[in-house]
Design a protein around this nucleic acid. Structure first.
Lengths: 101, 101
DNA sequence: TGCTATATTCGTCGAACGTCGAACTTTCTC
DNA sequence: GAGAAAGTTCGACGTTCGACGAATATAGCA
């Protein structure tokens, strides 16, 4: 784990193709959908069938796309949707997640 | 050019991650945006700064994602948005293209 | 002070992507 | 029929992706 806080990009630097690419992976899309439906949660709450390193990689992609906010809580991570993404791309997440069923 | 019609997938077979991936490229996104804004048009109406083979490749990606409909007109191609995509993923294109400015 | 749990980073692998140029097919025009 | 024009396909190249295991770092607990 990194000793300090995570690197989150300025929301203005996030591009639409970047966000769409982040959402174009089924696992990442399901993570975002779960966050939108159920609110923030811990790391292991996503029972993804991938190795921890792979999940960490996907979280980094989502973080770099400005979609999630990661904070530490002891040895655990709390993951939440970044609220600014709604002002940056209004309606995008709601539309995409709704279509993902 | 292929001697017969182009291969278009059944709209039901198109998946959301597939569509998002198709839209996550700036060139492809601009093509879809132009079609949505201005209606069908010919091949060369997109002054893309890429080789013809590259443009052909991107068109194939869009076609396989169920986003566009390609028809021949002599040696030229007419490209149009696939109307069924709106019933398959209602509001998606309008939302994404609006956010792309 | 260890030991355990959690998450990141690194190196690696095969597959897919985006780009190009060259060759090819089909159609139109002269 | 010959030539030009429009797209497609192919192979090549370098980059990125998604996956994994191993090694590492940090925090909590005994």
């Amino acid at each position: 784990m990194v000793q300090d806080a995570y690197q989150h990009p300025a929301i203005a630097d996030v591009t639409l193709p970047e966000v769409l690419h982040a959402l174009s992976d089924p696992l990442r899309l399901s993570i975002v959908a779960a966050l939108l439906a159920g609110g923030p949660r811990g790391w292991g709450a996503f029972d993804a069938q991938v190795a921890a390193s792979t999940l960490s990689h996907h979280m980094k992609v989502l973080r770099h796309a400005g979609l999630i906010l990661t904070t530490r809580d002891g040895t655990r991570c709390q993951v939440a949707l970044r609220p600014e993404i709604e002002t940056r791309f209004p309606g995008l997440l709601a539309t995409v997640v709704a279509l993902a069923e």
